[in-house]
Structure formats: C-alpha cells, structure tokens
C-alpha cells in the first residue's frame, strides 16, 4: 500500500508542482492521467524515492520515508518498489535472464532463476532468456521490464508511460499483464500516463 500527503516539488521558483494526495491499496490499481509538462514523471520519481519532495510525506507499507538515510532509501526502493519506464532500458551487455537476476542481486537478495523463468513464461518471452535485450522487439522489451519490476515481489509497482511507445495490440497486452501480475502478488499499481487508450482500463483515476 502506498499513500502520499501534500507532496510538492520545484525545479525553480517559477516551476513549482503541488500534487494531489494519493492512496492506492494492496492489489489495487491507480491511473494518473496528465498532459506533458504537468509533472507526471516528477511525481512518479518522488513516489519512487528517486527525488526528494520539498514538502509532504509518503507512506509505503506503513512506513514513512521522510526520516530515511540515502542508504536506507536505496534499500527500500530496491526491495519495495518496482519501476517500469517509458522506454525499456537494460544493462545492454547482459542477457535478458541476467538483467532479471540483476534486480535480485542489487537488492541484496538471492538470485531466483526459477522465478525469472516463471515470469518469462507468464509474460511470453520464455524463449528469449539467453538473448541480449536489444535483440527483442519494443513490446517484448517492455514485458521484460515488467518482469524485472516484479522480481523482488515489490509492495508498489510504478509505471511511467509504459504503453506510449507501443501499438494498440501490445498496449492492451502490457496493461493486462501489469494489472494481472500486480494483483497476483498483491502490490499497489500506479500508472502515470497521457495515453488516452488507458482511460477505460482503470476505475481509479486522478488527473493532474
């Protein structure tokens, strides 16, 4: 579960963002819609603990993040939060499987090959595990990045424009997978997008 209160952030005195409060329970999904320049990515980065908000607080699984040291923040981010970016990025020298295991390794967990194989089968790229990531199509890459976000069984899954580079078919597929997988592990799913195709897919919505 993730909640936020009175979050605000400013890049400069002229460009200040104040964000509406957010509540997303375990196993639920929340869509945050907004046009470009409304601070969608900024909000997502604050929720992902990549940016420190100017004011306000975030509670993840009942713990406030305000008083965390940078090291603790990194640990919480690695273990509690799975992030999916607009364009799937990977460590390009590693294979698909290694990229998945990397998420275990960097979070300091044991590397779960079975889980990687299971997720790959679920998300439909089981035969690509030993390939390099750039050999995969965009849709496949986005599915790999979903699997990577799920590797540590996070409490919160954050997705930044996960579908904007995909065609309708892959868009539908990715949204369904995101919803199904996060529900399966009981995580809160927050999708930030301007993609109008997703409007009807989520019952909980916030507009920026």
């Amino acid at each position: 579960m993730i909640t936020s209160k009175d979050l605000s952030f400013s890049y400069s005195p002229h460009k200040k963002f104040s964000f509406p409060d957010i509540l997303c329970n375990d196993g639920e999904a929340l869509l945050i819609l907004g046009q470009s320049g409304r601070g969608k990515t900024t909000l997502l980065h604050i929720l992902a603990l990549l940016l420190t908000p100017e004011s306000g607080d975030i509670i993840i699984d009942g713990h406030s993040i305000r008083s965390l040291s940078p090291g603790q923040t990194a640990t919480v981010r690695a273990n509690k939060i799975g992030i999916i970016y607009q364009r799937a990025h990977f460590v390009s020298s590693l294979t698909v499987l290694e990229n998945l295991l990397l998420s275990n390794y960097l979070a300091g967990r044991s590397q779960d090959r079975n889980k990687a194989a299971y997720l790959a089968d679920q998300l439909g790229f089981g035969e690509h595990l030993s390939k390099k990531t750039h050999e995969l199509s965009q849709g496949e890459q986005q599915r790999v990045s979903i699997a990577r976000a799920l590797m540590n069984n996070p409490a919160v899954i954050l997705a930044d424009e996960p579908t904007s580079n995909l065609d309708d078919e892959n868009c539908q597929k990715v949204v369904n997978l995101l919803k199904a997988q996060s529900a399966q592990i009981g995580a809160s799913l927050i999708v930030v997008t301007h993609d109008q195709r997703l409007k009807d897919e989520f019952s909980n919505q916030i507009s920026l």
Partner: peptide, 9 residues
C-alpha cells in the same frame, strides 16, 4: 544504465 542500476538499489 548507471542511473538504472542506482535506481535498482
């Protein structure tokens, strides 16, 4: 990649 790995812990 570096930023990604940093964000992954």
């Amino acid at each position: 990649e570096m930023a990604l790995m940093l964000s992954m812990g």
